[in-house]
Amino acid sequence: MLRYLGNRLLYAIPTVTCVVFAVFLLLHLIPGDPAQVMLGVGASEQDLAALREKLGLDRPLVVQFARYARGVLSGDLGDSFAYRKEVLPVILERLPATLELTFAAMLLACGIGIPLGVEAAIRRRSSFDLLCRVIALTGVSFPVFWLAIQLMYLFAVTLPLLPLSGRGGPVYTWSGVRHLLLPAVALSTIMLPSTMRLTRSSMLEVLGQEYVRVARSKGLRELVVIYKHAFRNAILPVITNIGLQFGMLLGGAFLTEHVFAWPGIGQLTVNAIFRRDFPLVQGVILVTALAFFLVNLGVDVSYAYLDPRVRREMAERA
């Protein structure tokens, strides 16, 4: 297992290098001078030149990239142009809020989507199945932005049950939970429909397998057949999907954070792009790519534990 993990971590190096290079190049290719954006159109040429020099923007692109890459290797992501401080602390200040929101949305999507998908598969072609499919289709069709506004209006303005926006504190506090609920529900709609549909189709496939028929013919209770024999096999593609959907959730979190004034890296990134704060955008994307990689690594590891075939294959390779 350790060797497997080591190999996977090695794969991360070219992936992250490509991400860093692509983002650096894209950011520097789009029009917009950071010095101009920072100082405004009224700035004098001397001030602009001085600031470009200070930010290193007067150097050739290759030199700028070499400096940046050297910094990344030594753990220095540079200084944010707008915040005038190191990028990493600026990101780390906000990262817990984004992770909290993303994982809460993921928990909600799985906690609701998987049981509904299983139940829809068991009650195939029933009105419950139809309802689940309608919910899935609706969830996919509604933009998160629109849904978020509707949720806010209903639960915070019309029925003032929950706070409208902001983060009320850490997730283990009551205020933190109350503030987290609406954005997490809104964000979970990105993942919930696909989780539910995939669980349903995967369960339907497994329920038609011979070993399920054998289990039933042995006279096992239906609950045991469903959850011990069918579900454990059906869940594998769902888990893979969770890893892939994590990226979608992070992307969706950017928009959700903007609407709910959630103090995470999403808001930070949007502002950094408009301000042409290159080091900050690069830093956020690097951290996000690493987070995405780690979650997928976690998914792969759990896959290995859940699927005996993978375990056996890894043992044979070792």
Binding site: M152, V157, P160, L164, S165, V259, A261
Partner: peptide, 18 residues
């Protein structure tokens, strides 16, 4: 001072008394 970037949400926050 609370930053609420979305104009509609700022308006709703005022309506809700937040």
């Amino acid at each position: 001072l609370r930053p609420i970037p979305e104009g509609t949400v700022r308006a709703m926050s005022l309506m809700a008394g937040e």
